[in-house]
Amino acid sequence: MSGPQPIIKPATPNFSSGPCAKRPGYDLANLNTATLGRSHRSSLGKAALQKTIDDTAAILKLPADYRVGIVPASDTGSMEMIMWSLLGERPVDVCYWESFGKGWLTDIKQQLKLENVNAFGADYGELPDLSRVDPKNDLVFTWNGTTSGVKVPNADFISDQREGLTICDATSAVFAMPMPWEKLDVVTYSWQKVLGGEGGHGMIILSPRAVERLESYTPSWPLPKIFRLTSNGKLMEGIFEGATINTPSMLCVSDYQDALDWVKELGGVEQCIEKSLANLAVLEKFVAEHDWIHFLAKESANRSNTSVCFSVDLDDSQIKKFIKLLADNDAAYDIGAYKDAPSGLRIWCGSTVEQQDLKALLPWLTWAYHQVA
């Protein structure tokens, strides 16, 4: 039977998996707006862009010879740019276990029309057999399946003697999970995920091996201007020095810088990871104590600590009522499963979410379940 409606609500009921919650204490008034109304190619604009690049590299502790660039169109733009620019030189292994990873496979086969492609897939909640990855091939995979709540537990499946490139979509993993950079040749992400930034801009991180491929290999297909990373066979270094391919929103850049500054104040990326794991532990305890809610991830080692996905012992119509009930009561916004995923819940647990808000949410989950069951 349902108990009384809870009284205490999360102070910030934003549990969306993208755009994600703003950092604690976020205030628009605190953003540096000196660049607004100025050219992004002015010395002021380029300096602001360069600072975000430098701070990103420093906070993530990237190897000194890795490059960081700001590109258009969020993580999707980053991944498309990389796939169109790098793939085709050798066979490609694609590992996928949710909608976005499967989308990269579709683009590789149907848009780029590559023929020598190996697809290693798994259903929602599971990982494919990663041991099948061939170190001679290029590899495309998502570190964390945002729509399935399943992550790779480590990068042991990637060979240190690999010949191909590893291309990793890490948009809901960077700043929340340890990244073994020496195993990753390309990493992409977007500001609106783990750091709760604004949408529309993507990031690419390139290893020297990726740069060498860009400068030595020319795809057989034409590249739109917005995808081009080289000019006359050389890397366009300006992209990695604050000269973006197209005009960025300097307001969004300032917002991203605010998030980076917060990470530094928190103590660094390790503290972000610890906070996210502590948030996940709150939900793990709750699931262990309630038999009507279950993690979609089959193995705990593969369980995401950012986009945490659940199945619930309710039918589809009941789940919709459950989600609406929480939103109507301002207890939780945007926690429904992704449209292509199995019906259920998805609760963001990245470091911008406060543990006390998750704890305040739990009685509401129980109440809402009994209201609609």
Results as ranks from 00 to 15, higher is better:
residue 131 S to Q: 10
residue 106 T to D: 15
residue 121 G to Y: 05
residue 93 D to K: 03
residue 114 L to V: 04
residue 128 P to T: 04
residue 133 V to N: 05
residue 101 G to R: 07
residue 114 L to D: 01
residue 96 Y to N: 05
residue 110 Q to H: 09
residue 109 K to V: 12
residue 113 K to D: 04
residue 95 C to Y: 07
residue 110 Q to A: 10
residue 96 Y to D: 04
residue 132 R to F: 11
residue 123 D to L: 14
residue 93 D to R: 05
residue 96 Y to A: 04
residue 120 F to V: 00
residue 115 E to F: 04
residue 112 L to M: 08
residue 102 K to A: 14
residue 124 Y to E: 03
residue 129 D to Y: 09
residue 107 D to M: 15
residue 106 T to K: 15
residue 114 L to M: 06
residue 129 D to T: 07
residue 97 W to C: 03
residue 104 W to S: 03
residue 111 Q to F: 13
residue 117 V to Y: 00
residue 131 S to A: 09
residue 106 T to W: 14
residue 99 S to I: 14
residue 116 N to G: 07
residue 131 S to I: 08
residue 101 G to V: 06
residue 123 D to W: 12
residue 122 A to M: 10
residue 120 F to N: 01
residue 121 G to K: 01
residue 132 R to W: 09
residue 118 N to V: 13
residue 108 I to Y: 07
residue 100 F to I: 12
residue 118 N to E: 14
residue 117 V to E: 00
residue 98 E to M: 03
residue 120 F to L: 09
residue 133 V to Q: 06
residue 108 I to P: 01
residue 104 W to M: 08
residue 95 C to G: 06
residue 123 D to M: 13
residue 95 C to P: 03
residue 127 L to P: 03
residue 108 I to A: 06
residue 106 T to Q: 15
residue 128 P to G: 00
residue 119 A to F: 03
residue 125 G to K: 00
residue 128 P to I: 01
residue 100 F to E: 09
residue 127 L to S: 06
residue 104 W to C: 04
residue 118 N to T: 14
residue 111 Q to L: 10
residue 118 N to Y: 13
residue 133 V to M: 06
residue 105 L to G: 11
residue 96 Y to H: 08
residue 105 L to N: 11
residue 93 D to I: 04
residue 111 Q to E: 12
residue 128 P to F: 04
residue 125 G to N: 01
residue 126 E to Q: 15
residue 94 V to R: 01
residue 124 Y to M: 05
residue 109 K to W: 07
residue 103 G to M: 11
residue 118 N to Q: 14
residue 129 D to M: 07
residue 115 E to C: 03
residue 120 F to G: 02
residue 96 Y to I: 03
residue 121 G to I: 00
residue 117 V to D: 00
residue 124 Y to K: 06
residue 108 I to L: 07
residue 106 T to E: 14
residue 111 Q to K: 12
residue 124 Y to C: 08
residue 110 Q to G: 10
residue 118 N to G: 12
residue 113 K to F: 06
residue 114 L to I: 02
residue 110 Q to E: 13
residue 95 C to D: 04
residue 130 L to R: 09
residue 94 V to L: 03
residue 118 N to H: 15
residue 116 N to Q: 11
residue 97 W to R: 04
residue 95 C to M: 11
residue 102 K to Y: 14
residue 120 F to M: 08
residue 125 G to H: 01
residue 123 D to A: 15
residue 104 W to H: 10
residue 128 P to K: 03
residue 111 Q to R: 13
residue 114 L to P: 00
residue 128 P to Q: 01
residue 109 K to F: 10
residue 100 F to V: 13
residue 93 D to N: 04
residue 114 L to R: 02
residue 94 V to I: 11
residue 130 L to M: 09
residue 124 Y to S: 05
residue 120 F to T: 00
residue 105 L to R: 12
residue 101 G to Q: 06
residue 96 Y to V: 08
residue 120 F to R: 04
residue 122 A to K: 10
residue 111 Q to D: 09
residue 127 L to K: 07
residue 108 I to S: 05
residue 133 V to C: 09
residue 98 E to A: 06
residue 133 V to H: 07
residue 112 L to I: 09
residue 95 C to V: 08
residue 98 E to I: 06
residue 94 V to P: 00
residue 116 N to V: 11
residue 134 D to N: 15
residue 126 E to Y: 15
